[in-house]
C-alpha cells in the first residue's frame, strides 16, 4: 500500500485543492481557499441510500441485465463511501486508490457475468431470472 500511495501521491498533489498546503486539515484549507464542500455525513447517507437501492434492485428485478446494473450501483455506493472518507482524512490516497481499483474490478466482474449470461442465452434460455431454473431441490 505504501508503494501504491507514494506512486500516486505526486499525481494527487498536482490538484488545486492540495496546492495550498498538504499539512493543513481539510477544513482549514477550505477556509483558506474559500471553497465550500458537501459535508461528509451527507455523502455517507447518499452512499448508504444508493447501496440500499442497489440491494433492492438486486432482490426484486427479474431482468438479469438490470440485476447486474444493481450490483454496479452497490459497488459505486461503496466507492462514494471510500472517497468521502478519504476526503475527510486530508485526501488520504489509500481510499482513493481503493476506489479506482473497485471501478476496474467492477468492470471485470460484469464482463465475466455477461460472458456467462451469453453462454446461457446461446442455449436458447432467456435473460429473465425465472429462466434459469434447471437446478433446484
Amino acid at each position: 500500500m505504501n508503494c501504491l500511495s507514494s506512486l500516486l501521491s505526486p499525481l494527487f498533489s498536482m490538484g488545486p485543492a492540495m496546492s495550498l498546503s498538504t499539512d493543513l486539515p481539510l477544513s482549514l484549507q477550505e477556509a483558506a481557499s474559500g471553497a465550500q464542500h458537501v459535508p461528509t455525513e451527507w455523502l455517507m447517507i447518499l452512499a448508504a441510500l444508493l447501496f440500499a437501492l442497489g440491494t433492492l434492485g438486486f432482490l426484486i428485478r427479474r431482468n438479469l441485465i438490470i440485476v447486474f446494473m444493481s450490483i454496479e450501483l452497490m459497488l459505486n455506493a461503496t466507492n462514494l463511501t471510500f472517497l468521502a472518507a478519504a476526503r475527510d482524512r486530508n485526501l488520504d490516497p489509500n481510499g482513493q486508490v481503493y476506489a479506482i481499483i473497485v471501478i476496474a474490478l467492477a468492470a471485470v466482474e460484469v464482463a465475466v457475468g455477461l460472458a456467462l449470461l451469453i453462454s446461457l442465452f446461446r442455449l436458447k434460455v432467456g435473460i429473465d431470472v425465472e429462466d434459469a431454473q434447471e437446478l433446484k431441490g
Binding site: 440485476v67 450490483i71 466482474e109 457475468g113 456467462l116 449470461l117 446461457l120
Partner: peptide, 11 residues
C-alpha cells in the same frame, strides 16, 4: 446446467 451454475455463482 453448467452455464446456469456459472451465472448463479457470479450473480
Amino acid at each position: 446446467r453448467s452455464a446456469e451454475a456459472g451465472l448463479k455463482y457470479v450473480l
